[in-house]
Structures are given as structure tokens and as C-alpha cells.
């Protein structure tokens, strides 16, 4: 790796890190504003114009709160919990392709931190590490509500990971690659995977809601039953880390959904409008973010519209509906591929 590439990558990492943090930050603002819109309220208005400084005010408030570690808690693990949650949330963005390559003065800038050939597997691996954040934090707080929240988080995430993994196998069968860049490249123009795999998208979206602990699957932290779930005992920025990690996860999930099913940085007529390749690449980044924002909005829309599932209903949905459905989807996809190749009969 030459020196310039190193600089490229470092700058890209910083930018992506900043962008995902800022997006997550402003998702909290968006969440409040969207919730307010659904509920006939105004939402935040006082901090800055239209309340735009609200996320900063929230962050500042969280930093200034008293840090409480319960007497009976395991101190090391208590601190480790939110750190894992935050770390894993920030790590996922490494393999997401943000746009086509840019060419400047014979130099090729790849808008992806690491194009590993097992990109999708990496995403799943890191996301499943995230559950340790909730599990360790909940267990270490030595609180019954936290413990129940942690158990719920663990069992929920594990069961939904299965359905999620199975649902994208059909995508992998279509594309024949685990690299996210390959998957996105194959959806050039309007040739998005959603047209071929609507069922897989549906399953994936539901699982993504469950993975990010969003309503209607926010059982690990459902406030009416478990007070605060696994973060009942947390205060100050440790609580902030948990909440923030949720928003980053939401951003990453939206990015993965748009990359897998909605063509990532591809947009219709991208090859026929006659722009230079750099302009198309930059436009593509824009389109990718529009898609991401749309899915973040969808997450919020779902959250503020429907009630929460019960624990057993959630498990039933995961194991009895989503997993069989995704297996059926795999079989159908396989059959269709074989028939197309003509090797079935």
C-alpha cells in the first residue's frame, strides 16, 4: 500500500466516522421532530433555529450528569458494556461502499474503507458482537430489571440474526459474492435486488428492526415493563453511549439495507445522463444517503405507529414465521436460478 492510499484511507475513515456520528446525532433530532409530527406536537424548538442544536444540548447534558455506578455492580464490566455497544456500532461502517471510485490526476480514490471479500460476513460478525454490550451491561448492573432486559436482548438478537442471515443467503446466491462492493456493483442502474427478492427484503427489514432494538421489537429496553431494560442503572454518558449506539446501528442498518436491496449508490439512468464518472460517483453518494435517510425515516415511522410485541410473540415471529419463510425463499431462489441455467431438467 503506497503512502497516498494510506492518506486516502485515513481521511476516508475520519470522514465516515464523523458522518456516521453526525447522522446518528441528527437522527435523534429527526426522531423527535418526526415523532412530534406524528403526534401533533412541535418537538424541539428552543435550542438554536428550529431546535437544530438540540442534539448538542442533549449530549452536553449527558456529559454533565452525575456518573453513578451502583455499589453492587461489577465495576469493570459495568463500564465495558456501553463501550462494547459503542465500539461495535462504529466498526460496522468499514465495509460499506459509499460510492463509485473517484479519479483525480491519475489517482484512484476508493470510497470504501476496506473492500474485504467477506464484507457481509464481517457486518454480521460485528453486529452480533453488539449484543455483548447489552448483555454485559445488563448483567453487571446487578439489577433484576436489567438482567431481564439483558436476557431478552441476547435471546432476541440471536434468534433474529438467524432469520437475517438466512434472508440474505438468497441475495448471495444471486450475486455469488459476499463482498458488499460486488453486490452493489451488480445492481447498476435500476437493476436493484428488491425487484428480485422482495420477500428477503421484508424479512431483512423486520430483522433489522429487531437487531437495532427498535419498536415494535424494543423489548430489551421497553420502559413500561422493565423500566429501562438493560440500561436501567446507567446514567450520564454511559447511558448516552447505549442510546447513541442504537442510532448508529440504525444508520448502519439503513445503509446495509440500501446497499443490499436498493442498489446502494446506484441510481436510475446513471449511465445514460452523460455526466463525467466523477460527477456520477458524487451523485451516487448523494443518492445513497437519500436512501439511508429514507430508511431511517421508515424505522421511525414504524416506531411511532405501532405497539410493541410481547416476548413470546416476538420469538414466535422469529422462529415460526421469519426463519421458515427465509428458507422457503432460499429454495425458490435456488430453483429459479437452476431453471434459468437450464440445468434443472
Amino acid at each position: 500500500m503506497d503512502f497516498i492510499t494510506l492518506i486516502d484511507k485515513s481521511v476516508l475513515i475520519v470522514i465516515i466516522f464523523a458522518v456516521s456520528l453526525v447522522t446518528a446525532m441528527y437522527s435523534t433530532y429527526g426522531e423527535r421532530k418526526i415523532a412530534a409530527f406524528f403526534q401533533d406536537r412541535l418537538g424541539p424548538t428552543n435550542a438554536g433555529p428550529w431546535g437544530l442544536l438540540q442534539p448538542l444540548a442533549d449530549g452536553g447534558k449527558l456529559f454533565m450528569k452525575e456518573e453513578i455506578i451502583p455499589d453492587q455492580a461489577n465495576k469493570a464490566l459495568f463500564i465495558l458494556g456501553p463501550s462494547i455497544a459503542m465500539l461495535t456500532a462504529c466498526m460496522t461502517s468499514a465495509v460499506i461502499p459509499w460510492g463509485k471510485d473517484l479519479y483525480f490526476f491519475d489517482h484512484n480514490i476508493v470510497l470504501q474503507v476496506a473492500d474485504v471479500n467477506i464484507g457481509l460476513l464481517y457486518v454480521f460478525g460485528v453486529v452480533s458482537l453488539g449484543v455483548y454490550g447489552a448483555l454485559i451491561g445488563g448483567w453487571a448492573s446487578n439489577n433484576k430489571f436489567s438482567l431481564m432486559g439483558a436476557i431478552r436482548a441476547a435471546s432476541q438478537n440471536i434468534s433474529y440474526e438467524l432469520a437475517m442471515g438466512l434472508s440474505i443467503i438468497s441475495i448471495i446466491m444471486l450475486t455469488g459474492s459476499l463482498s458488499l462492493r460486488d453486490i452493489v456493483e451488480q445492481q447498476a442502474g435500476f437493476n436493484w435486488n428488491i425487484w428480485y427478492q422482495p420477500l428477503a427484503f421484508l424479512i431483512f427489514f423486520v430483522c433489522a428492526l429487531a437487531e437495532t432494538n427498535r419498536a415494535p421489537f424494543d423489548l430489551p429496553e421497553c420502559e413500561t415493563e422493565l423500566v429501562g431494560g438493560y440500561h436501567t442503572e446507567y446514567s450520564s454518558m454511559k447511558l448516552g453511549f447505549y442510546l447513541f449506539a442504537e442510532y448508529i446501528n440504525m444508520f448502519i442498518s439503513a445503509a446495509v439495507i440500501s446497499a443490499l436491496f436498493f442498489g446502494g449508490y446506484n441510481f436510475p439512468f446513471m449511465n445514460s445522463i452523460g455526466l463525467s464518472s466523477n460527477a456520477i460517483a458524487l451523485l451516487g453518494v448523494g443518492f445513497f444517503f437519500i436512501k439511508i435517510l429514507f430508511f431511517i425515516f421508515l424505522f421511525m415511522w414504524v416506531r411511532w405507529t405501532i405497539p410493541r410485541f410481547r416476548y413470546d410473540q416476538l420469538m414466535k415471529l422469529g422462529w415460526e414465521i421469519l426463519i421458515p419463510l427465509s428458507i422457503v425463499n432460499i429454495i425458490i431462489t435456488g430453483l429459479v436460478i437452476l431453471i434459468k441455467e437450464g440445468s434443472l431438467f
Partner: peptide, 16 residues
């Protein structure tokens, strides 16, 4: 009751 079940929006509509 909506809040207990997990739906927050109906609560605020009712409060309105």
C-alpha cells in the same frame, strides 16, 4: 393503556 402496550402516539393524540 396505549403507552403500556408500547404505542406512544395514541397517548399524545388522546392527551391533545
Amino acid at each position: 393503556y396505549g403507552v403500556d402496550i408500547g404505542a406512544f402516539t395514541p397517548f399524545l393524540w388522546m392527551m391533545r
